[in-house]
Write a protein that binds this DNA or RNA. Structure first.
Length: 420
RNA sequence: GGAGAGAUGGCUGAGUGGUCGAAAGCAACGGUUUGCUAAAUCGUCGUACCCCACAAGGGUACCGCGGGUUCGAAUCCCGCUCUCUCCGCCA
């Protein structure tokens, strides 16, 4: 949700953002609604004030006296008007709030303006693409991958895109998760274990609802949603709270499986590890003072990059353009790892600043000494997702023998130098 | 899952239809004072929204959440959520 003050005072800025993000919401309608809404509020509150002052008089009158009864008669009309006004206001506010939720966040001035993903800018690249194994092969075509994963049985047990992983592969996944979490802890992120399902209010606060309903698995009996990312429960940790300024910045890291319906995804992109309905990810979330949020974004990206560097995996950083920026972000970097077998880049992390967009929805504020509460800025980034990093390791480090060399930094976690 | 109890401001806790946004205490903040690692005393001490210049000032709402009854609801009625106790079930 964007700030209503910005909406009223700088509508053109918001208009520009809507256009640049390729959104189709109608700001004029919303502004008109806002005006009407405020007039109605004023009218209703005036009636209420009258009601209140007469009530005060009535309190001192003899109950049942003629004066008292006259007042009751008189106030019946006012009560009716208040009721009507309330109902009208409630209806109006409901649609207004809905409309407000449809306004995208305003991109930061450093974000390139372009309508499509082609407008994304390669911010930097790291590593030597040619340094990958000469035996690199798409992981889903390799013997070792097919031996240590089981997609057919996953399909039987659940459905397509719900694989099993076996033996060394399962252990390698666990090694990656532990590596990520330990690195996060070393950099000041406190580890959190979170619920894997959330309620509607939480899904709304982080922006999954109302838009991306179709991307989540729903548990209708209880009104729950399976989390598409731990960003949802973790960010909502502080929902409806006022933090102390001295507590900021707060860093949290959380490992969870993530569940995504991926409705509409088909074809080449979904083979093997490239896209599954359940995948493991460590998510990093920050709650920060607004004055620091863009520095915090850079350091968040830096942390995720560091992980790939330690894993010795070539990658590039994309600065997302306005058209490829999500609804909720003001600025976003995507980290893409090089998968030498598929000869393509795979997105493994997305680091975003939301400024106060989520905080406003989630009502997360902080208070500086003696000041009014102000919304925090929230950021999050993957640090990192597991399957595609695993894919890159399986491809880039594939040996002639068919085994896979484990990155040095993972050996102590994995317990062996090769996955065989 | 069954039975019961409860939910009030940062905390504790009064308040069962009428000047209650809500007593009191604690905590916190500011001042005064006292020869002292603290006490005394005075004051301040919630959030959101509306009018207005986001000032001063005024107004409205909020006593778990949502409805209802009423001229008037923290207080009565209904639904829901959560917490606690007991029973059941269970990793």
């Amino acid at each position: 949700m964007i700030d209503t003050k910005i909406l009223r005072e700088e509508p053109d800025r918001v208009r520009e953002a809507i256009a640049n993000k390729g959104s189709d919401c109608d700001l004029d309608v919303i502004l008109a609604m806002d005006t009407e809404r405020r007039q109605l509020i004023t009218a209703v509150e005036k009636l209420r004030a009258e009601q209140k002052s007469v009530n005060a008089e009535m309190a001192s009158l003899q109950k049942g006296s003629p004066e008292f009864l006259a007042k009751v008669q008189e106030m019946r009309g006012v009560a009716g008007q208040v009721k009507e006004g309330d109902a009208a206001l409630k209806a109006l506010e409901e649609t207004w709030a809905q409309q407000m939720l449809s306004i995208p966040n305003i991109p930061h001035s450093s974000v390139p303006v372009a309508p499509t993903p082609e407008g994304n800018v390669v911010h930097s690249t790291w590593g030597d693409l040619a340094s990958a194994s000469p035996f690199a092969k798409a992981h889903y075509d390799s013997e070792i991958f097919n031996r240590l994963s089981d997609f057919p049985r996953g399909s039987k047990v659940t459905g397509a895109g719900w694989p099993f992983f076996k033996g060394g592969m399962a252990r390698l996944i666990r090694s990656l998760i532990n590596f990520y979490l330990d690195q996060a802890r070393d950099h000041g992120f406190e580890e959190l274990m979170a619920p894997l399902v959330v309620n509607e209010a939480s899904a709304r606060a982080t922006g999954q609802l109302p838009d991306k309903e179709g991307q989540m698995y729903v548990i209708p009996q209880d009104g729950f949603f399976m989390i598409p990312t731990s960003e949802v429960p973790v960010t909502n940790y502080y929902r409806d709270e006022i933090l102390e300024e001295s507590e900021l910045p707060i860093y949290r890291a959380c490992y969870t499986p993530c569940f995504r319906r991926e409705a509409g995804s088909h074809g080449k992109d979904v083979r093997g590890l490239n896209r599954t309905h359940q995948f493991d990810k460590v998510e990093l979330v920050k709650w920060v003072n607004p004055s620091d949020s863009y520095d915090e974004l850079e350091s968040l990206r830096g942390h995720s990059e560091m992980l790939l560097q330690k894993l010795e995996l070539p990658y590039r950083v994309l600065l997302m353009c306005t058209g490829d920026l999500g609804f909720t972000q003001t600025k976003k970097y995507d980290l893409e790892v090089w998968a030498a077998g598929q000869e393509r880049w795979l997105e493994v992390s997305s680091c975003s600043n939301f400024e106060a967009f989520q905080a406003r929805r989630a009502n997360i504020r902080f208070r500086a000494q003696g000041e009014k509460p102000v919304h925090v800025h929230t950021l999050n980034g993957s640090g990192l997702a597991v399957p595609r990093v695993l894919a890159a390791i399986l491809e880039n480090n594939l040996q002639e023998s068919g085994s896979v060399k484990i990155p040095d930094v993972l050996v102590s976690y994995f317990g062996q130098e090769y996955l065989t």
